[in-house]
């Protein structure tokens, strides 16, 4: 009986295995990002106002749609990692629950890095398309050229949001494993909360979205994600597999 099978070495082996196994996720990501890019070409916000002599049509362009799509994509990615099928795949080979979670989280973090970089940079593809395809005299140069620090900040923030969303998806997946009814209960609970106390949701949303200090924001997201991920681990700790 060998003793050199510590948690981290197994988890990292699982991580590499899962990274390869889930590499096909890149197709769905590219698909939805390109789709979002097409949507973005018509602008994310538009406004027009008219006076006697002047009619102004303003369209705003950004990678917001691309980023939002990527958010939802990561939610489903993390949800999928908790499915029975992927559990079975884990328990076909060497694993325990914790190493399975650790490798899943590792995979999610890698996916998040990829997703946050690609979604943030996709905005430049949008700009290049606009540069060549649109009447340039109508385009505001302001914000066209990349500013490295802004890009970096954008990528990090996107990644942090994705981490939080992934942790929520993961928790939902675990809850569904505990009882299928959670598919309905999860949104119902949110909806009920909204009805009972509309401020709650807005407050928790603002807790993240209105934080203007990058450091505080990062701390809030990282702590919350950690809590949610550990909750997932705890909840699934006693669960039987491959019944």
């Amino acid at each position: 009986m060998s003793l050199n099978n510590n948690l981290l070495s197994i988890a990292s082996r699982q991580y590499v295995y899962k990274l390869k196994a889930n590499s096909s996720g890149v197709y769905s990501l590219i698909f939805i990002q390109v789709l979002a890019l097409l949507f973005s070409l018509s602008g994310i916000q538009s406004m027009s106002s008219v006076s006697e002599t002047l009619r102004v049509n303003v369209k705003y362009f950004s990678a917001d749609i691309i980023i939002s799509f990527t958010f939802i994509w990561i939610f489903f990615m993390s949800l999928r990692l908790t499915s029975i099928n992927s559990k079975t795949m884990d328990f076909t080979l060497v694993t325990n629950r914790l190493s399975s979670h650790l490798s899943n989280i590792g995979l999610l973090l890698t996916t998040i890095i990829f997703g946050s970089i690609s979604s943030s940079l996709m905005g430049f593809v949008l700009k290049i398309i606009m540069y060549f395809a649109f009447d340039r005299s109508q385009i505001g140069v302001n914000g066209f050229y990349p500013v490295f620090s802004d890009i970096l900040l954008g990528i990090i923030t996107t990644g942090l949001y994705m981490t939080l969303i992934a942790s929520m998806g993961y928790l939902l997946g675990i809850l569904i494993q505990i009882h299928v009814l959670f598919v309905v209960l999860y949104p119902a609970a949110l909806f009920g909360l909204e009805k009972v106390n509309p401020q709650m949701l807005k407050l928790s949303f603002d807790f993240f979205a209105s934080e203007t200090s990058p450091l505080l924001f990062a701390i809030r997201i990282i702590l919350s994600s950690l809590i949610v991920f550990s909750l997932s681990c705890l909840l699934s700790n006693r669960m039987e597999v491959r019944k």
Partner: peptide, 11 residues
Amino acid sequence: LTLKLFKSNFT
């Protein structure tokens, strides 16, 4: 006037 303006991403 048709203006196409860039907005920074919400992130």
